[in-house]
């Protein structure tokens, strides 16, 4: 009996040692984050989009997005009566008919911003640039307003509004400007059919003949990269493009590939708005590409040396396909309109 007790005691001790002896690697206590009253905002990413990246210091919340939306439409962020929404109007997929703002759509999945890529990084980076360098926002006006201090305090938990917070709130709203419900998206989800002309246009777009896809990749319909697409034979001023940022002669005439989503609504086209219609743009690629030292190699295909050689019907089909990228849900989305 005594030896049984001895055995039992020993076993208990040994088991205790065993249980506590192995060093665990994942039991470190997580410092509890401050209990927050903010509500997470869930942004869905289509399966054919790149992964969504949200910086850890600016989580997407209903309250943050709402504040960003209010700022987006408010002239208080400028000193000359402008608001973001003046050059980025919802009915034009957040572009403007006045040359030539890039559309605010699906920027949550981009990391290069502005036509010449002056800012690369996150939406927080580009919005910091817009707030400080472009608008030169006077935060005193916000701090002394009757509505903003409470809203900022709720989102950022601080008593004084900073330009960083303005930028971060705007970044949150712009992150939600997602265009993912065009006819083409519905086609990809097997919810609708394309017409035979639209299908023909898609095949042209997505094969070597039309060869749009190498730069305007399916999904975002851009490739988040810079190219010279042959619109100029000499380069001066803003037409120097990416060169104006890098001062590298190899970047002369290169611009960020614009997304073709909602392209029906985003005229005029190119960085300076030189083309009024989609037909003009297609005709450029069809017959008017300028050969310069930095012209993207893709334009030199032997069968394309004298342009794409599209027939009149090809051009009609291509435009028909491009119009399937129009997202009426997006341009009518009440969550993105002026509050």
């Amino acid at each position: 009996m005594r030896s049984n007790n001895y055995l039992l005691a020993t076993l208990i001790i040994c088991i205790s040692i065993f249980v506590f002896s192995c060093k665990k690697t994942n039991n470190e206590e997580v410092t509890p984050t401050e209990v927050s009253t903010l509500t997470p905002y869930i942004l869905n990413t289509p399966s054919y989009f790149p992964k969504l990246i949200i910086p850890s210091d600016n989580p997407l919340t209903i309250e943050g997005v709402s504040l960003g939306r209010k700022l987006y439409y408010d002239t208080i962020i400028s000193n000359d009566g402008r608001a973001c929404a003046q050059c980025h109007s919802q009915q034009y997929a957040f572009t403007s008919p006045i040359p030539n703002s890039l559309g605010h759509m699906n920027l949550a999945w981009n990391n290069k911003f502005l036509w010449n890529g002056l800012i690369e990084g996150t939406l927080e980076d580009i919005m910091t640039f817009e707030v400080t360098a472009f608008f030169n926002t006077n935060v005193n006006k916000l701090n002394s307003s009757s509505t903003y201090p409470d809203l900022f305090k709720k989102v950022f938990n601080s008593n004084s509004i900073t330009t960083k917070q303005v930028a971060y709130a705007l970044a949150q709203f712009i992150r939600t400007q997602a265009s993912t419900n065009s006819k083409f998206d519905k086609y990809l989800r097997y919810e609708t059919m394309l017409t035979s002309s639209e299908i023909s246009g898609f095949v042209l777009y997505n094969t070597e003949k039309g060869d749009c896809f190498h730069c305007h990749s399916l999904g975002l319909f851009n490739d988040n990269a810079y190219h010279n697409n042959g619109i100029d034979s000499v380069f001066t001023g803003i037409n120097m493009g990416r060169y104006n940022v890098t001062h590298n002669p190899n970047d002369l005439g290169k611009f960020k590939t614009p997304s073709l989503r909602n392209v029906e609504l985003t005229a005029p086209y190119m960085h300076d708005g030189r083309f009024a219609t989609l037909e003009d743009v297609i005709e450029h690629y069809n017959s008017k590409v300028n050969n310069t030292a930095t012209l993207d190699p893709i334009f030199f295909k032997p069968s394309h040396l004298y342009g794409l050689q599209l027939t009149a019907q090809d051009k009609i089909d291509l435009v028909a396909f491009l119009k399937t990228l129009t997202d009426t849900t997006f341009i009518n989305n009440p969550a993105l309109s002026q509050p």
Binding site: S47, Y48, P50, N206, F213, S217, L218
Partner: peptide, 19 residues
């Protein structure tokens, strides 16, 4: 197509379905 993680790079490397 879309087997790999959808980074921007992987998406740009996709070979069109039609080909």
């Amino acid at each position: 197509s879309y087997y790999l993680t959808n980074t921007a790079e992987n998406i740009n490397m996709i070979w069109p379905t039609y080909m």
